[in-house]
Amino acid sequence: MRGRSAIWRPLADQYGLLALVLLVSISVANAISPGILSLTNFSAMTTFGVEIGLLAFGETVIILGGGGGIDLSVGSMFAVSQVVVAVLVQQGADIWLGIAAGIASGVIMGSINGWLVTRVRIPAIITTLATMYAYSGTALLLTNGIDISNFPAAFNVFGQGMVLGLPFQFVAVYVPVAIILWFVLTKTLYGYRLYLTGTNQTAAILSGIDIHRVRMGAYVLTGLLCSLAGIIDASRLATARPDAGLSANLEAITIAVLGGTSIFGGRGTIGGTIMATLVITLLGYSFSLANINSVIETGTVGLILIAVVLGQHFVRRWTAAVSPRRS
């Protein structure tokens, strides 16, 4: 009996189950489009993963902070910030000024979310549902609903440039952001406080942690990440689309949860989110190579999501039944 639980226990663990999913998806991807695991393909794949990966990082941080934290507006912030950059650049502003303004817009939108959630105390799911509408509308208003595409060539580097044979945005944005976030979450004061707040809000307050500031930080950070992703997206496609990122709102949450972030807060890691992003990108890329619609891929992800959460539930229950935990 004990042996059985020892074999299965790793699956109750976040990484264990996720690694299994990743392995399966690699073999599925390989079956669908043989030869996908080549270096060139890897480089192309990273292009796809960066944007949604950044949004998922933001979602992870917000959900980690607990208290029902969630952000349905990431896709909308993603759209607004790319449109801000495009409008400014189109009107002759310096690229860097445009980018700075785009990032600032993300920070401002994130702050508005954070303010509504932590100060006005509107539940996050409602706040961000409302701001999702409001930000999307703003993006459309800014451009009259039209795509903007006449960027100066210098702007192309952010989404089309190559560094060391890999996409610029992967090497210069995603990897550094991942490292910084990993560092922030696991090594710094803020990270410790975020996990503690997400685990037990009352105990955190009684430990002298200002939980509202901690959560506010998560929303602002998410706004920032969304703006980075938005700018990369505009540059990659050489077009700023006010309706970009509509499906990203829920997809980012899916990735975070698939990566092992508990919807109740306090549990989850950047590593898990990276692995989940990898799963999704891999599937997406192999599906697109095989000419399967990306929606099918999203559906597969939905299936995996429920299967993983269900699986964790049943494996946990089973291992608990086999060897009762000390209380």
Partner: peptide
């Protein structure tokens, strides 16, 4: 399965769309 409603329905949202 005790899967939280938001996660369950997020999942089925993409599943039905794929179908």
């Amino acid at each position: 399965g005790k899967v939280p409603p938001i996660i369950t329905t997020l999942g089925t949202m993409s599943i039905w769309r794929a179908v």
